[in-house]
């Protein structure tokens, strides 16, 4: 059936089964492959997007459930990688292989929207389901604090 979804400020009409996970609609129907598949069961965070500003695991979110809502993916987080999280990630060279990083960045951006000056405890709680096999966690933690400072006006 035809579904119309608002993704990154644009409306897409796609012909998919309504139970299709949003992840695969983003990737295969819309060509937005920055959002990654890692597990399919909402346990790794590689597929993290925002729906109405809240963190959502797109692999476990039916496409039909996103109709009428605003979806943001890594491609729509900012023009030219200017979101404070992206700036901090670049400054600190956080990614290694990079595969989980779209999800890490989207989760971190949602955390900062909710808590502009997160504690380490906030980071532990909010980033708990974003896994990284390369072990970039120390960089992620530092970059979230740095992003908070950038967003707060620091240089």
């Amino acid at each position: 059936m035809a579904l119309t979804l608002s993704v990154n400020g644009r409306n897409y009409t796609v012909d998919v089964e309504p139970e299709t996970p949003l992840l695969w609609v983003l990737r295969d129907n819309m060509g937005l492959v920055g959002t990654k598949y890692g597990c399919g069961i909402a346990r790794c965070g590689a597929c993290t997007v925002h729906i109405d500003g809240q963190v959502a695991r797109s692999c476990a979110t039916q496409a039909a459930a996103a109709v009428g809502k605003t979806v943001t993916t890594i491609e729509g987080l900012s023009p030219n990688s200017t979101h404070p999280v992206q700036v901090a990630w670049t400054e600190l060279d956080v990614p290694q292989c990079g595969y989980c990083q779209s999800g890490q960045i989207m989760a971190a951006a949602a955390l900062l929207a909710k808590r502009p000056r997160p504690t380490d405890g906030d980071i532990d709680a909010e980033m708990e389901l974003n896994l990284c096999r390369c072990g970039t966690y120390q960089g992620i933690r530092a970059a979230i604090h740095r992003a908070a400072a950038i967003a707060g006006g620091a240089r």
């Binding site: 920055g34 990630w89 956080v94 990614p95 990079g98 990083q101």
Partner: peptide, 27 residues
């Protein structure tokens, strides 16, 4: 030195094997 691949890995554009896309491609 700054890693040359970092900018592609903070905006989702780095192409991984999973992301290859060709015309007429099937899955």
């Amino acid at each position: 030195l700054a890693r040359l691949d970092t900018p592609l890995k903070v905006n989702g554009t780095a192409t991984f094997g999973f992301d290859v896309k060709l015309p007429g491609m099937v899955y």
